[in-house]
Design a protein around this nucleic acid. Structure first.
Lengths: 242, 242
DNA sequence: CGGAATGTTGATATGCCTCAACTAAAGTGG
DNA sequence: CCACTTTAGTTGAGGCATATCAACATTCCG
Protein backbone atom coordinates (compact mmCIF):
# COMPACT_ATOMS: atom_id res chain seq x y z
CA UNK A 1 0.00 0.00 0.00
CA UNK A 2 1.18 3.53 -0.77
CA UNK A 3 2.22 5.63 2.23
CA UNK A 4 -0.57 8.16 1.78
CA UNK A 5 -3.16 5.37 1.73
CA UNK A 6 -1.90 3.89 4.99
CA UNK A 7 -1.90 7.38 6.45
CA UNK A 8 -5.40 8.27 5.28
CA UNK A 9 -6.82 4.95 6.41
CA UNK A 10 -5.57 5.66 9.90
CA UNK A 11 -6.59 9.32 10.08
CA UNK A 12 -10.11 8.44 9.01
CA UNK A 13 -10.36 6.19 12.02
CA UNK A 14 -9.84 9.27 14.16
CA UNK A 15 -11.78 12.10 12.53
CA UNK A 16 -14.00 12.65 9.49
CA UNK A 17 -11.52 13.61 6.77
CA UNK A 18 -13.13 15.25 3.72
CA UNK A 19 -11.89 15.19 0.13
CA UNK A 20 -10.00 18.46 0.41
CA UNK A 21 -8.24 17.21 3.56
CA UNK A 22 -7.36 13.97 1.81
CA UNK A 23 -6.01 15.89 -1.13
CA UNK A 24 -3.83 17.98 1.17
CA UNK A 25 -2.51 14.82 2.78
CA UNK A 26 -1.72 13.25 -0.56
CA UNK A 27 0.31 16.31 -1.47
CA UNK A 28 2.59 16.06 1.53
CA UNK A 29 6.15 15.21 0.70
CA UNK A 30 7.36 12.23 2.59
CA UNK A 31 10.56 10.35 2.63
CA UNK A 32 10.22 6.60 2.58
CA UNK A 33 12.80 4.57 4.44
CA UNK A 34 13.31 0.85 4.67
CA UNK A 35 14.99 -0.83 7.59
CA UNK A 36 16.05 -4.39 7.04
CA UNK A 37 17.74 -5.22 10.32
CA UNK A 38 15.64 -6.33 13.27
CA UNK A 39 16.65 -4.23 16.24
CA UNK A 40 17.81 -1.24 14.22
CA UNK A 41 17.05 2.06 15.93
CA UNK A 42 15.59 4.79 13.82
CA UNK A 43 15.17 7.33 16.61
CA UNK A 44 17.23 7.52 19.76
CA UNK A 45 16.68 8.87 23.23
CA UNK A 46 18.07 12.42 23.15
CA UNK A 47 17.41 13.04 19.44
CA UNK A 48 15.65 16.20 18.34
CA UNK A 49 13.54 15.05 15.43
CA UNK A 50 12.48 17.49 12.71
CA UNK A 51 10.11 15.07 11.05
CA UNK A 52 7.47 12.62 12.23
CA UNK A 53 7.49 8.98 11.20
CA UNK A 54 4.55 6.82 10.17
CA UNK A 55 4.85 3.05 10.12
CA UNK A 56 3.92 1.74 6.68
CA UNK A 57 4.92 -1.90 6.96
CA UNK A 58 6.21 -4.04 9.80
CA UNK A 59 6.29 -3.45 13.52
CA UNK A 60 8.37 -1.04 15.59
CA UNK A 61 8.86 -0.67 19.35
CA UNK A 62 9.43 2.23 21.70
CA UNK A 63 11.75 1.60 24.64
CA UNK A 64 13.53 3.24 27.53
CA UNK A 65 17.16 2.52 28.26
CA UNK A 66 17.93 2.26 31.97
CA UNK A 67 21.09 3.32 33.74
CA UNK A 68 22.20 -0.32 33.83
CA UNK A 69 21.81 -0.57 30.07
CA UNK A 70 18.73 -2.77 30.41
CA UNK A 71 15.70 -2.00 28.27
CA UNK A 72 12.11 -1.40 29.15
CA UNK A 73 9.94 -1.80 26.07
CA UNK A 74 6.93 0.51 26.18
CA UNK A 75 4.68 -0.24 23.21
CA UNK A 76 4.61 -1.81 19.81
CA UNK A 77 3.43 0.10 16.77
CA UNK A 78 1.68 -1.20 13.69
CA UNK A 79 1.17 0.12 10.16
CA UNK A 80 -0.60 3.46 10.27
CA UNK A 81 0.78 4.36 13.72
CA UNK A 82 2.75 7.52 14.45
CA UNK A 83 5.27 6.35 17.00
CA UNK A 84 7.01 9.70 17.42
CA UNK A 85 4.18 12.17 16.90
CA UNK A 86 5.09 13.66 20.28
CA UNK A 87 8.26 14.97 18.65
CA UNK A 88 6.08 17.67 17.09
CA UNK A 89 5.93 19.50 20.40
CA UNK A 90 8.45 17.84 22.69
CA UNK A 91 11.90 18.97 21.61
CA UNK A 92 13.89 15.98 22.78
CA UNK A 93 13.12 12.28 22.57
CA UNK A 94 12.80 10.67 26.00
CA UNK A 95 12.95 7.17 24.53
CA UNK A 96 14.18 5.31 21.47
CA UNK A 97 12.31 3.51 18.70
CA UNK A 98 13.58 0.45 16.90
CA UNK A 99 12.43 -1.89 14.15
CA UNK A 100 11.28 -5.31 15.30
CA UNK A 101 11.99 -6.78 11.89
CA UNK A 102 11.98 -5.53 8.30
CA UNK A 103 10.10 -2.25 8.35
CA UNK A 104 9.02 0.51 6.00
CA UNK A 105 8.47 3.93 7.53
CA UNK A 106 7.82 7.27 5.95
CA UNK A 107 8.52 10.62 7.50
CA UNK A 108 6.88 13.99 7.08
CA UNK A 109 8.64 17.15 8.20
CA UNK A 110 7.29 18.95 11.24
CA UNK A 111 7.30 22.10 9.15
CA UNK A 112 4.80 20.70 6.66
CA UNK A 113 2.66 19.24 9.41
CA UNK A 114 2.49 22.50 11.38
CA UNK A 115 1.45 24.29 8.21
CA UNK A 116 -1.29 21.81 7.45
CA UNK A 117 -2.55 21.91 11.06
CA UNK A 118 -3.06 25.64 10.78
CA UNK A 119 -4.80 25.43 7.41
CA UNK A 120 -6.85 22.32 8.20
CA UNK A 121 -7.35 21.89 11.93
CA UNK A 122 -9.16 18.61 11.51
CA UNK A 123 -5.95 16.92 10.40
CA UNK A 124 -4.21 18.10 13.52
CA UNK A 125 -7.12 16.83 15.60
CA UNK A 126 -6.81 13.40 14.01
CA UNK A 127 -3.14 13.16 14.86
CA UNK A 128 -3.76 14.61 18.31
CA UNK A 129 -6.31 11.87 18.83
CA UNK A 130 -3.72 9.32 17.72
CA UNK A 131 -1.41 10.55 20.50
CA UNK A 132 -4.27 10.38 23.00
CA UNK A 133 -4.98 6.76 22.17
CA UNK A 134 -1.27 6.08 22.63
CA UNK A 135 -1.50 7.65 26.07
CA UNK A 136 -4.48 5.41 26.91
CA UNK A 137 -2.39 2.42 25.88
CA UNK A 138 0.44 3.59 28.14
CA UNK A 139 -1.98 3.93 31.05
CA UNK A 140 -3.23 0.43 30.48
CA UNK A 141 0.36 -0.83 30.50
CA UNK A 142 0.98 0.78 33.86
CA UNK A 143 -1.99 -1.12 35.20
CA UNK A 144 -1.14 -4.36 33.45
CA UNK A 145 2.50 -4.43 34.51
CA UNK A 146 1.76 -3.18 38.03
CA UNK A 147 -1.27 -5.08 39.10
CA UNK A 148 -1.61 -8.24 37.08
CA UNK A 149 0.86 -11.03 37.47
CA UNK A 150 2.14 -14.02 35.63
CA UNK A 151 -0.01 -15.48 32.91
CA UNK A 152 -2.70 -12.81 33.30
CA UNK A 153 -0.21 -10.12 32.43
CA UNK A 154 0.84 -12.01 29.34
CA UNK A 155 -2.78 -12.65 28.39
CA UNK A 156 -3.70 -8.98 28.58
CA UNK A 157 -0.71 -8.04 26.46
CA UNK A 158 -1.59 -10.64 23.85
CA UNK A 159 -5.20 -9.43 23.68
CA UNK A 160 -4.06 -5.90 23.01
CA UNK A 161 -1.53 -6.84 20.36
CA UNK A 162 -3.95 -9.12 18.56
CA UNK A 163 -6.69 -6.48 18.40
CA UNK A 164 -4.32 -3.75 17.33
CA UNK A 165 -2.81 -5.96 14.65
CA UNK A 166 -6.31 -6.70 13.44
CA UNK A 167 -7.29 -3.05 13.24
CA UNK A 168 -4.06 -2.33 11.38
CA UNK A 169 -4.96 -5.05 8.90
CA UNK A 170 -2.01 -7.32 9.59
CA UNK A 171 -3.77 -10.13 11.47
CA UNK A 172 -5.51 -13.24 10.30
CA UNK A 173 -8.60 -14.74 11.93
CA UNK A 174 -6.74 -16.25 14.88
CA UNK A 175 -3.12 -15.23 14.54
CA UNK A 176 -0.95 -12.19 14.08
CA UNK A 177 2.71 -11.28 13.81
CA UNK A 178 4.38 -10.63 17.15
CA UNK A 179 8.11 -10.50 16.50
CA UNK A 180 9.38 -10.63 20.07
CA UNK A 181 11.94 -12.95 21.60
CA UNK A 182 11.16 -14.22 25.09
CA UNK A 183 13.83 -11.89 26.41
CA UNK A 184 12.04 -8.95 24.81
CA UNK A 185 8.68 -10.19 26.03
CA UNK A 186 10.12 -10.08 29.53
CA UNK A 187 11.52 -6.59 28.98
CA UNK A 188 8.10 -5.49 27.79
CA UNK A 189 6.15 -6.91 30.70
CA UNK A 190 8.62 -6.28 33.49
CA UNK A 191 9.50 -9.89 34.15
CA UNK A 192 12.56 -12.07 33.66
CA UNK A 193 12.88 -14.13 30.52
CA UNK A 194 12.58 -17.27 32.64
CA UNK A 195 9.20 -16.11 33.94
CA UNK A 196 8.10 -15.09 30.46
CA UNK A 197 9.04 -18.54 29.25
CA UNK A 198 7.15 -20.32 32.00
CA UNK A 199 3.97 -18.31 31.74
CA UNK A 200 4.09 -18.74 27.98
CA UNK A 201 4.18 -22.47 28.52
CA UNK A 202 1.17 -22.24 30.79
CA UNK A 203 -0.79 -20.53 28.02
CA UNK A 204 0.36 -23.22 25.60
CA UNK A 205 -0.47 -26.10 27.87
CA UNK A 206 -3.94 -24.74 28.59
CA UNK A 207 -4.54 -24.19 24.86
CA UNK A 208 -5.20 -20.48 25.29
CA UNK A 209 -2.50 -18.93 23.13
CA UNK A 210 0.88 -19.64 21.68
CA UNK A 211 3.81 -17.46 20.68
CA UNK A 212 6.32 -19.10 18.37
CA UNK A 213 8.71 -17.82 15.77
CA UNK A 214 7.39 -14.26 15.94
CA UNK A 215 3.80 -15.30 15.54
CA UNK A 216 1.00 -15.18 18.09
CA UNK A 217 -1.72 -17.82 17.71
CA UNK A 218 -4.96 -17.43 19.59
CA UNK A 219 -6.41 -20.79 20.60
CA UNK A 220 -9.22 -19.53 22.80
CA UNK A 221 -10.02 -15.85 22.60
CA UNK A 222 -12.63 -16.11 25.33
CA UNK A 223 -10.22 -17.67 27.80
CA UNK A 224 -7.48 -15.20 26.89
CA UNK A 225 -9.79 -12.23 27.47
CA UNK A 226 -10.98 -13.65 30.74
CA UNK A 227 -7.51 -14.50 32.02
CA UNK A 228 -6.19 -11.05 31.09
CA UNK A 229 -9.34 -9.29 32.37
CA UNK A 230 -9.25 -7.54 29.03
CA UNK A 231 -11.68 -4.77 28.13
CA UNK A 232 -10.94 -3.08 24.82
CA UNK A 233 -12.53 0.26 25.75
CA UNK A 234 -9.18 1.94 26.24
CA UNK A 235 -8.27 1.38 22.58
CA UNK A 236 -11.04 3.87 21.71
CA UNK A 237 -11.88 2.35 18.39
CA UNK A 238 -15.21 4.10 18.05
CA UNK A 239 -14.88 7.37 16.22
CA UNK A 240 -16.24 10.51 17.87
CA UNK A 241 -17.98 13.40 16.11
CA UNK A 242 -15.84 16.48 15.80
CA UNK B 1 -5.26 32.76 42.02
CA UNK B 2 -7.99 33.24 39.45
CA UNK B 3 -8.70 30.28 37.17
CA UNK B 4 -7.61 32.10 34.02
CA UNK B 5 -4.29 33.01 35.64
CA UNK B 6 -3.55 29.42 36.58
CA UNK B 7 -4.52 28.40 33.08
CA UNK B 8 -2.40 31.02 31.34
CA UNK B 9 0.59 30.32 33.52
CA UNK B 10 0.49 26.71 32.45
CA UNK B 11 -0.16 27.30 28.75
CA UNK B 12 2.77 29.70 28.57
CA UNK B 13 5.00 26.91 29.73
CA UNK B 14 4.01 25.02 26.59
CA UNK B 15 3.85 27.56 23.78
CA UNK B 16 4.38 31.29 23.29
CA UNK B 17 0.95 32.77 23.99
CA UNK B 18 0.50 36.34 22.73
CA UNK B 19 -1.77 39.04 24.14
CA UNK B 20 -4.63 38.27 21.80
CA UNK B 21 -4.46 34.57 22.73
CA UNK B 22 -4.42 35.48 26.40
CA UNK B 23 -7.40 37.73 25.91
CA UNK B 24 -9.30 34.91 24.20
CA UNK B 25 -8.50 32.61 27.10
CA UNK B 26 -9.67 35.15 29.65
CA UNK B 27 -12.98 35.35 27.84
CA UNK B 28 -13.70 31.66 28.08
CA UNK B 29 -16.62 30.80 30.32
CA UNK B 30 -15.66 28.32 32.95
CA UNK B 31 -17.51 26.76 35.77
CA UNK B 32 -15.64 26.64 39.02
CA UNK B 33 -16.27 23.67 41.29
CA UNK B 34 -15.03 22.92 44.75
CA UNK B 35 -14.68 19.45 46.12
CA UNK B 36 -14.24 19.18 49.85
CA UNK B 37 -14.13 15.43 50.36
CA UNK B 38 -10.86 13.58 49.88
CA UNK B 39 -11.55 10.66 47.58
CA UNK B 40 -14.49 12.24 45.82
CA UNK B 41 -14.66 11.31 42.14
CA UNK B 42 -15.36 14.06 39.70
CA UNK B 43 -15.10 11.95 36.57
CA UNK B 44 -15.79 8.25 36.32
CA UNK B 45 -14.68 5.47 34.03
CA UNK B 46 -17.38 5.27 31.34
CA UNK B 47 -18.40 8.93 31.50
CA UNK B 48 -18.68 10.95 28.31
CA UNK B 49 -17.47 14.37 29.34
CA UNK B 50 -18.59 17.48 27.46
CA UNK B 51 -16.16 19.79 29.22
CA UNK B 52 -12.51 19.64 30.19
CA UNK B 53 -11.34 20.23 33.74
CA UNK B 54 -8.34 22.24 34.90
CA UNK B 55 -6.99 21.83 38.41
CA UNK B 56 -6.89 25.22 40.14
CA UNK B 57 -6.05 24.23 43.69
CA UNK B 58 -5.22 20.94 45.36
CA UNK B 59 -4.21 17.59 43.91
CA UNK B 60 -6.24 15.05 41.95
CA UNK B 61 -5.47 11.50 40.85
CA UNK B 62 -6.35 9.39 37.83
CA UNK B 63 -6.97 5.71 38.47
CA UNK B 64 -8.14 2.49 36.90
CA UNK B 65 -10.58 0.21 38.63
CA UNK B 66 -9.80 -3.47 38.21
CA UNK B 67 -12.26 -6.31 37.92
CA UNK B 68 -11.59 -7.18 41.55
CA UNK B 69 -12.48 -3.68 42.61
CA UNK B 70 -8.86 -2.84 43.41
CA UNK B 71 -7.43 0.43 42.19
CA UNK B 72 -4.39 1.25 40.16
CA UNK B 73 -3.51 4.91 40.53
CA UNK B 74 -1.95 6.29 37.36
CA UNK B 75 -0.81 9.86 38.00
CA UNK B 76 -1.30 12.81 40.26
CA UNK B 77 -2.21 16.21 38.88
CA UNK B 78 -1.29 19.61 40.22
CA UNK B 79 -2.67 23.12 39.75
CA UNK B 80 -2.58 24.06 36.07
CA UNK B 81 -2.89 20.45 34.89
CA UNK B 82 -5.61 19.22 32.56
CA UNK B 83 -6.31 15.74 33.86
CA UNK B 84 -9.04 14.91 31.34
CA UNK B 85 -7.92 16.81 28.24
CA UNK B 86 -8.13 13.50 26.37
CA UNK B 87 -11.91 13.74 26.71
CA UNK B 88 -11.79 16.31 23.93
CA UNK B 89 -11.27 13.55 21.38
CA UNK B 90 -11.86 10.26 23.17
CA UNK B 91 -15.58 9.86 23.67
CA UNK B 92 -15.55 7.70 26.75
CA UNK B 93 -13.40 7.89 29.88
CA UNK B 94 -11.23 4.81 30.33
CA UNK B 95 -10.39 5.76 33.92
CA UNK B 96 -11.70 7.83 36.80
CA UNK B 97 -10.36 10.97 38.46
CA UNK B 98 -10.74 11.80 42.12
CA UNK B 99 -9.76 14.55 44.51
CA UNK B 100 -6.93 13.72 46.91
CA UNK B 101 -8.12 16.34 49.34
CA UNK B 102 -9.92 19.68 49.13
CA UNK B 103 -9.74 20.74 45.50
CA UNK B 104 -10.84 23.53 43.21
CA UNK B 105 -11.29 22.69 39.56
CA UNK B 106 -12.75 24.68 36.72
CA UNK B 107 -14.20 23.28 33.56
CA UNK B 108 -14.43 24.65 30.05
CA UNK B 109 -16.85 23.16 27.55
CA UNK B 110 -15.41 21.17 24.68
CA UNK B 111 -17.52 23.32 22.38
CA UNK B 112 -15.72 26.50 23.38
CA UNK B 113 -12.34 24.81 23.24
CA UNK B 114 -12.88 23.42 19.76
CA UNK B 115 -13.91 26.85 18.59
CA UNK B 116 -10.82 28.50 20.05
CA UNK B 117 -8.54 25.80 18.60
CA UNK B 118 -9.81 26.60 15.12
CA UNK B 119 -9.47 30.35 15.55
CA UNK B 120 -6.16 30.24 17.44
CA UNK B 121 -4.24 27.06 16.68
CA UNK B 122 -1.48 27.91 19.13
CA UNK B 123 -3.82 27.40 22.06
CA UNK B 124 -4.66 23.95 20.80
CA UNK B 125 -0.97 23.22 20.40
CA UNK B 126 -0.31 24.22 23.99
CA UNK B 127 -2.98 21.85 25.30
CA UNK B 128 -1.86 19.15 22.89
CA UNK B 129 1.62 19.53 24.32
CA UNK B 130 0.16 19.19 27.82
CA UNK B 131 -1.31 15.83 26.82
CA UNK B 132 2.03 14.78 25.32
CA UNK B 133 3.87 15.52 28.54
CA UNK B 134 1.24 13.46 30.35
CA UNK B 135 1.98 10.59 27.98
CA UNK B 136 5.70 10.92 28.72
CA UNK B 137 4.88 10.71 32.43
CA UNK B 138 2.83 7.55 31.80
CA UNK B 139 5.72 6.01 29.89
CA UNK B 140 8.06 6.76 32.75
CA UNK B 141 5.62 5.09 35.15
CA UNK B 142 5.60 1.96 33.07
CA UNK B 143 9.36 1.85 33.39
CA UNK B 144 9.41 2.77 37.05
CA UNK B 145 6.79 0.26 38.13
CA UNK B 146 8.11 -2.47 35.85
CA UNK B 147 11.83 -2.31 36.22
CA UNK B 148 12.75 -0.63 39.47
CA UNK B 149 12.04 -2.27 42.76
CA UNK B 150 11.61 -1.41 46.37
CA UNK B 151 13.04 1.84 47.61
CA UNK B 152 14.27 2.86 44.14
CA UNK B 153 10.73 2.80 42.83
CA UNK B 154 9.58 4.98 45.69
CA UNK B 155 12.52 7.32 45.22
CA UNK B 156 11.79 7.87 41.54
CA UNK B 157 8.16 8.57 42.28
CA UNK B 158 9.07 11.07 44.98
CA UNK B 159 11.50 12.87 42.67
CA UNK B 160 8.81 13.29 40.05
CA UNK B 161 6.16 14.51 42.46
CA UNK B 162 8.50 16.97 44.11
CA UNK B 163 9.60 18.50 40.81
CA UNK B 164 6.08 18.70 39.46
CA UNK B 165 4.82 20.27 42.67
CA UNK B 166 7.63 22.79 42.41
CA UNK B 167 6.80 23.69 38.82
CA UNK B 168 3.16 24.04 39.79
CA UNK B 169 4.19 26.43 42.53
CA UNK B 170 2.94 24.37 45.46
CA UNK B 171 6.27 23.18 46.89
CA UNK B 172 8.63 24.71 49.37
CA UNK B 173 12.40 24.44 49.22
CA UNK B 174 12.57 20.87 50.48
CA UNK B 175 9.00 19.71 50.93
CA UNK B 176 5.73 19.46 49.09
CA UNK B 177 2.19 18.21 49.63
CA UNK B 178 1.71 14.53 48.79
CA UNK B 179 -1.68 13.54 50.15
CA UNK B 180 -1.42 9.77 49.81
CA UNK B 181 -2.03 7.11 52.41
CA UNK B 182 0.40 4.20 52.38
CA UNK B 183 -2.34 2.05 50.89
CA UNK B 184 -2.66 4.51 48.02
CA UNK B 185 1.09 4.76 47.66
CA UNK B 186 1.11 1.01 47.17
CA UNK B 187 -1.75 1.20 44.66
CA UNK B 188 0.20 3.83 42.76
CA UNK B 189 3.47 1.91 42.64
CA UNK B 190 2.14 -1.60 42.21
CA UNK B 191 3.17 -2.88 45.63
CA UNK B 192 1.38 -3.93 48.79
CA UNK B 193 0.84 -1.42 51.55
CA UNK B 194 3.20 -3.43 53.76
CA UNK B 195 5.99 -3.06 51.21
CA UNK B 196 5.22 0.62 50.75
CA UNK B 197 5.49 1.03 54.51
CA UNK B 198 8.78 -0.80 54.76
CA UNK B 199 10.50 0.96 51.87
CA UNK B 200 9.25 4.25 53.25
CA UNK B 201 10.94 3.43 56.51
CA UNK B 202 14.16 2.68 54.68
CA UNK B 203 14.07 6.16 53.13
CA UNK B 204 13.40 7.62 56.56
CA UNK B 205 16.13 5.70 58.30
CA UNK B 206 18.70 6.63 55.67
CA UNK B 207 17.66 10.29 55.89
CA UNK B 208 16.77 10.50 52.22
CA UNK B 209 13.10 11.41 52.31
CA UNK B 210 10.07 11.21 54.51
CA UNK B 211 6.34 11.04 53.84
CA UNK B 212 4.13 11.89 56.78
CA UNK B 213 0.68 13.34 57.13
CA UNK B 214 0.34 14.04 53.41
CA UNK B 215 3.62 15.86 53.18
CA UNK B 216 6.80 14.77 51.44
CA UNK B 217 10.05 16.04 52.95
CA UNK B 218 13.25 15.77 50.98
CA UNK B 219 16.24 15.19 53.25
CA UNK B 220 18.84 14.52 50.56
CA UNK B 221 17.86 15.35 47.01
CA UNK B 222 21.12 14.00 45.64
CA UNK B 223 20.64 10.61 47.26
CA UNK B 224 17.00 10.47 46.24
CA UNK B 225 17.84 11.18 42.60
CA UNK B 226 20.60 8.63 42.63
CA UNK B 227 18.53 5.93 44.30
CA UNK B 228 15.63 6.49 41.88
CA UNK B 229 17.96 6.82 38.86
CA UNK B 230 15.96 9.94 38.17
CA UNK B 231 16.48 12.03 35.03
CA UNK B 232 13.97 14.83 34.61
CA UNK B 233 14.20 14.95 30.80
CA UNK B 234 10.85 13.23 30.37
CA UNK B 235 9.06 16.08 32.10
CA UNK B 236 9.98 18.27 29.11
CA UNK B 237 10.15 21.48 31.04
CA UNK B 238 12.04 23.39 28.37
CA UNK B 239 9.72 25.17 26.00
CA UNK B 240 10.11 24.54 22.26
CA UNK B 241 9.69 27.13 19.52
CA UNK B 242 6.50 26.77 17.56
C1' DC C 1 -14.52 8.43 75.34
C1' DG C 2 -15.23 5.14 71.56
C1' DG C 3 -14.73 3.94 66.84
C1' DA C 4 -12.62 4.20 62.40
C1' DA C 5 -8.90 4.85 59.56
C1' DT C 6 -4.01 4.71 59.16
C1' DG C 7 0.39 3.15 60.23
C1' DT C 8 3.64 -0.46 62.19
C1' DT C 9 5.51 -4.96 63.12
C1' DG C 10 6.17 -10.02 62.94
C1' DA C 11 5.53 -14.54 60.84
C1' DT C 12 4.78 -17.30 56.95
C1' DA C 13 4.22 -18.52 52.24
C1' DT C 14 5.01 -18.03 47.52
C1' DG C 15 6.08 -16.10 43.24
C1' DC C 16 9.73 -14.46 40.88
C1' DC C 17 14.67 -13.64 40.04
C1' DT C 18 19.21 -15.37 39.41
C1' DC C 19 22.37 -18.70 38.30
C1' DA C 20 23.55 -22.37 35.56
C1' DA C 21 23.33 -26.13 32.52
C1' DC C 22 21.53 -27.94 28.55
C1' DT C 23 18.78 -28.30 24.06
C1' DA C 24 17.27 -26.67 19.75
C1' DA C 25 17.43 -23.86 15.91
C1' DA C 26 19.55 -20.74 12.86
C1' DG C 27 23.29 -18.72 10.62
C1' DT C 28 28.44 -18.90 9.07
C1' DG C 29 32.48 -20.38 6.95
C1' DG C 30 35.51 -23.92 5.43
C1' DC D 1 27.30 -30.08 2.85
C1' DC D 2 28.80 -30.43 7.28
C1' DA D 3 31.34 -28.71 11.57
C1' DC D 4 31.16 -24.66 14.18
C1' DT D 5 29.35 -20.67 16.38
C1' DT D 6 25.72 -18.00 17.93
C1' DT D 7 21.25 -17.07 19.38
C1' DA D 8 16.93 -18.49 21.30
C1' DG D 9 14.40 -21.46 24.11
C1' DT D 10 13.89 -24.85 28.09
C1' DT D 11 14.59 -26.80 32.61
C1' DG D 12 16.10 -27.28 37.50
C1' DA D 13 17.70 -25.53 41.94
C1' DG D 14 18.23 -22.10 45.44
C1' DG D 15 17.48 -17.78 47.51
C1' DC D 16 15.39 -13.41 48.05
C1' DA D 17 11.85 -9.95 47.70
C1' DT D 18 7.34 -9.21 48.11
C1' DA D 19 2.53 -10.67 49.12
C1' DT D 20 -0.51 -12.14 52.56
C1' DC D 21 -2.25 -12.78 57.09
C1' DA D 22 -2.73 -11.14 61.54
C1' DA D 23 -2.09 -8.51 65.59
C1' DC D 24 -1.24 -4.28 67.56
C1' DA D 25 -0.23 0.89 67.90
C1' DT D 26 -1.40 5.40 66.75
C1' DT D 27 -3.88 9.15 65.17
C1' DC D 28 -7.92 11.41 64.00
C1' DC D 29 -12.63 12.53 64.52
C1' DG D 30 -17.18 12.54 66.12
Amino acid sequence: MAPSDVLLRKLKRHCPIDDADAEAIRHLRYEVRELTEAGEDFIRQGDKPTAAAIVIEGIVARYHTLRSGARQYLTLHYPGDWPDAQGLFLAQMDHSICAMGPVVICSVSHEQLMKIFKARPIIGFAIWRETLVDAAIFRESITNNSSRRGAGRLAHFFCEQFLRAKVAGVAEADACPLPLSQTQLGEMLGMSLVSANRHLQTLRRTRIADLRAGRLSIRSWAKLVSLGEFDDGYLHQTVPNV
